[in-house]
């Protein structure tokens, strides 16, 4: 399975997180919000200017900028 960054998934697409490669501080924060390996996320919104994107993760919606979500790698699922 090819790993793709979350910043690359389109609105409505889903992915399962495989790896988080952001800076230490942000990684901890993301994990505490539920972004951990094996978690399913869906891109639910894109800001009018194209960035940030909002992801549905474990029942809540979290917006991330592309340079941050590009550090979260996952595999696309249907």
């Amino acid at each position: 399975m090819r790993l793709i960054p979350l910043s690359d998934i389109k609105k409505g697409e889903k992915a399962v997180i495989r790896e988080i490669k952001t800076c230490e501080k942000l990684r901890q924060r993301l994990m505490d919000m539920g972004f951990v390996e094996g978690t399913e996320v869906r891109c639910v919104r894109i800001s009018p200017f194209g960035d940030p994107k909002a992801f549905l993760v474990r029942g809540s919606v979290i917006a991330l900028r592309s340079e941050d979500s590009s550090g979260i790698l996952g595999v696309k699922i249907p």
């Binding site: 952001t22 501080k25 942000l26 919104r45 940030p52 919606v61 917006a63 991330l64 900028r65 941050d68």
Partner: peptide, 10 residues
């Protein structure tokens, strides 16, 4: 440079 941030949409 801007640091990473997370924004919840409640």
């Amino acid at each position: 440079v801007p640091t990473g941030f997370t924004l919840e949409l409640p």
